[in-house]
Design a protein around this nucleic acid. Sequence first.
DNA 1: AACGCCTGCAAGTGCCTGCTTGCATGGTTG
DNA 2: CAACCATGCAAGCAGGCACTTGCAGGCGTT
Lengths: 192, 192
Amino acid sequence: MQTKLALLDVTARLFADHGWRGTTTRRIAEEAGVNEVTLFRHFRSKEALLTEAIRKVATESHPDRLPEVPSDLRGELTAWAAGQHDRLRAKSSMIRTCLAEFEEHPELAPVACEGAMESMADAVRYLTLARERGLIGPDGSLEAATVMLMNAIFLDAITRDVVPDCQPVSPGESIDAFVDLSLRALGAGEGR
Amino acid sequence: MQTKLALLDVTARLFADHGWRGTTTRRIAEEAGVNEVTLFRHFRSKEALLTEAIRKVATESHPDRLPEVPSDLRGELTAWAAGQHDRLRAKSSMIRTCLAEFEEHPELAPVACEGAMESMADAVRYLTLARERGLIGPDGSLEAATVMLMNAIFLDAITRDVVPDCQPVSPGESIDAFVDLSLRALGAGEGR
DNA sequence: AACGCCTGCAAGTGCCTGCTTGCATGGTTG
DNA sequence: CAACCATGCAAGCAGGCACTTGCAGGCGTT
């Protein structure tokens, strides 16, 4: 069992760094410290191993949820956004690789964006409640605001390691700024 | 000369779709309709050919600029954003692949994000003028707003083809919504 | 006619790829 | 002790990879 887990682990790491074609069965076996033959005894093919390894990474960690009931809008949203950013950044290499490999292996796409959909729905729920309670103004699309905020955070997280000179400010600052702009756009802090 | 151009062209297309390792010299030659040997007579190696092809695509098209002087803020920003979105989406496959390949070929990164930096500076210039003229309010960071808007547009453009079910609305609608939220965040339309 | 240049073709180099086979070995369980 | 199971090792397969060599033909210029 632990051989299998080691193989899945190494495979995910190599795939994130070198893509599908760059992840060879020889190298997986070598880095996992097992014989290449053992790899084929556990998984019937390279394809089976890779899809299982990717699926595992995609499903193992669940995103933070926003509070059931909004109270400190800015604080809660900032904490949530920071959590999302951290989680995405920890997987940024895998995400970038997947985005490129979806073209040749489209079967992976649905699994990968499952988490994003969940977080999206959660944020919309939270903001809807906030609007009902008068914490934000009546105008502006909550769905659009959520998509925009998540897009901004997502892109920041996956490009930060790889094109650092493009991002003018530190992660913390940019997240605060994105949340601030989102709240302004939705008219928070006026009617309150 | 036209042999060389054909090779560069085919190489860029294949690289966008199949990545560095997936773009083989055999396949390039075949799709360009030339002998594989001819390829090596024009470029001293696969690496030289690929980097030249990518560099060419990255530098050949320049992004639209915003007007020198802002007047119709919403209209001008929306047109600009739509132009950015179209341009990015046309190259989305290449961009996704590059983001993944930067890890193994970091020398490509500076070239690739040059255009983004230009557009970024242009938008900040435009918004600064708009603020001076009182078209938008005095609060909120213009740099942050620009980064957020561009991030949102960029991510929308490069994921739309590949994870279509994740994007809830049509391109036109999402761009309008992003621009609308940015203007709200910067307090446009109030003091006007 | 002679030259230089671009190109195609056939063949081959050494290396890497995913994957298979046969056999030996060690540990765990009955 | 015997049966089983996971694993290692050595070897090999057919195919693909980047890249090279040698030779021949077609083209335009002089």
